[in-house]
């Protein structure tokens, strides 16, 4: 589903990703772990299409097509979803209007009929219940004044409504207490299916107790220095990242 080959990414002339190779097949859950500044978030943002990063070498194929040639909205319509580490507050746009616009934009792109207000409400209310979220959130401006936990749940809600084929979760666990973490993880697990893939970007192993990955990759200073199964995450929990550090220069850019 996703094939990353020798990906090099720079921002303002400073190289952050220094040759990433990663293959994610449908049905799999991958976790990308690493210390702060290792480039995890950069990878997530590049996959979603952020244009402040410059891809200097390599390629990304998604379902066989050149992902880097697609605009962010085209990637979304093709089923790629990024749950943001820092969801953006947009005053003046209600959460429900935003989510309905997004859903209909994607449906339209796929040649499906748009959902009307009533169908949308039925759909979204089901998802809200599953995520133990307050319905009143729908009428609030998108992420405005939301607590850290509410923002992360809202990301999960969007994912549940949009039902992406490839979901990338960027530090979705940060800012969540243990109860919220379980609920969010449950929302993610509900998406797991043989047709879908999930990439969980995280600093801590904690989330992986609830979203159990098939593969774990450790990113240090812009390179994947080790891959393994979930036991690798447990090992990292025990030993930290220090023992994996490559001889390359220390990372200075926060990812």
């Amino acid at each position: 589903m996703l094939e990353i080959r020798n990906l090099h990414v720079s921002v303002e002339g400073h190289e952050i990703l220094k040759g990433i190779d990663l293959t994610v097949r449908a049905g799999e859950v991958h976790s990308i772990m690493g210390p702060n500044g290792s480039g995890k978030s950069t990878l997530a943002q590049v996959l979603a299409g952020r244009d402040t990063y410059e891809v200097t070498a390599g390629e990304i194929r998604y379902d066989g097509q050149d992902l880097l040639g697609l605009a962010p909205e085209e990637r979304a319509c093709a089923g790629l979803f990024l749950a943001f580490q820092y969801p953006v507050e947009i005053p003046g746009v209600s959460t429900s209007y935003f989510l309905k616009s997004a859903l209909n934009a994607q449906r339209k792109h796929r040649g499906q009929p748009e959902v009307d207000a009533l169908e949308f409400l039925t759909l979204v209310k089901d998802k809200l219940k599953l995520l133990d979220m307050d319905e009143r959130l729908l009428n609030r401006a998108l992420n405005e004044g939301f607590s850290g936990g509410e923002k992360k749940r809202n990301e999960t809600l969007q994912m549940a409504v949009l039902e992406p084929r490839l979901a990338i979760l960027d530090e979705t666990d940060s800012g969540l207490d243990i109860d919220a973490l379980k609920i969010v993880a449950e929302g993610v697990n509900r998406l797991r299916s043989p047709e879908r893939a999930i990439v969980v970007v995280t600093h801590y192993q904690r989330l992986l107790n609830y979203i159990v990955p098939d593969y774990v990759h450790v990113l240090v200073d812009g390179r994947i220095v080790r891959s393994g199964d979930r036991r690798l995450a447990l090992e990292l929990e025990e030993k930290g990242y220090g023992w994996l550090a490559p001889e390359a220069e220390p990372a200075t850019v926060t990812g």
Binding site: G49, P72, E73, A76, F84, V93, A102
Partner: peptide
């Protein structure tokens, strides 16, 4: 960018903002 990553095309996202 946030709106675009949800599938809303750039011109529509600009109008919305």
């Amino acid at each position: 960018f946030y709106l675009q990553t949800r599938g809303i095309a750039a011109p529509a996202a600009r109008s919305l903002l």
